[in-house]
């Protein structure tokens, strides 16, 4: 197929499908609850059970203290979730957000909307023995 036909067809197709999905309400992020968070963690790392869970107020991220003593993050990915240990993560605090940086090309950083009080709670869970 000539590129001058294929190119515009692909661009219009991609943009059109994306706009249609947005119009249909299929762009709303999943909202975490405590049970969802626990299930989402165990779905990826079944050997390390969550002991404590702190869910961000926008319900798109949760900090977990695990049975191993390590920290974990459950992050909403569209309609789904992913889980990562935060063992070597760098924490960067700002006024309204916390940024977690990981040495992971497939999950490099997460900017999490957190009020200062929430950030203090997350830091407290991080530093708890």
């Amino acid at each position: 197929m000539p590129l001058e036909i294929l190119g515009p067809m692909v661009v219009v197709g991609i943009v059109g499908i994306a706009l249609l999905l947005r119009y249909l309400g299929l762009a709303e992020p999943f909202q975490l609850t405590g049970e969802h968070t626990r299930t989402a963690w165990l779905r990826e790392i079944p050997d390390d059970v969550p002991k404590q869970i702190l869910i961000a107020s926008n319900r798109e991220n949760a900090l977990l203290k695990l049975a191993s003593g390590k920290l974990g993050l459950v992050h909403v990915m569209g309609a789904d979730t992913m889980a990562r240990y935060l063992t070597d993560a760098t924490w960067q605090h700002a006024d309204t957000a916390l940024t977690l940086k990981l040495d992971d090309f497939a999950a490099p950083h997460f900017t999490i909307a957190l009020a200062p009080q929430e950030q203090a709670k997350w830091a407290s869970l991080r530093d708890a023995p």
Binding site: L21, A27, A79
Partner: peptide, 11 residues
């Protein structure tokens, strides 16, 4: 199931 960002990435 469909989700916008997932579908957009796939396309």
């Amino acid at each position: 199931r469909y989700e916008m960002r997932d579908a957009l990435t796939s396309l």
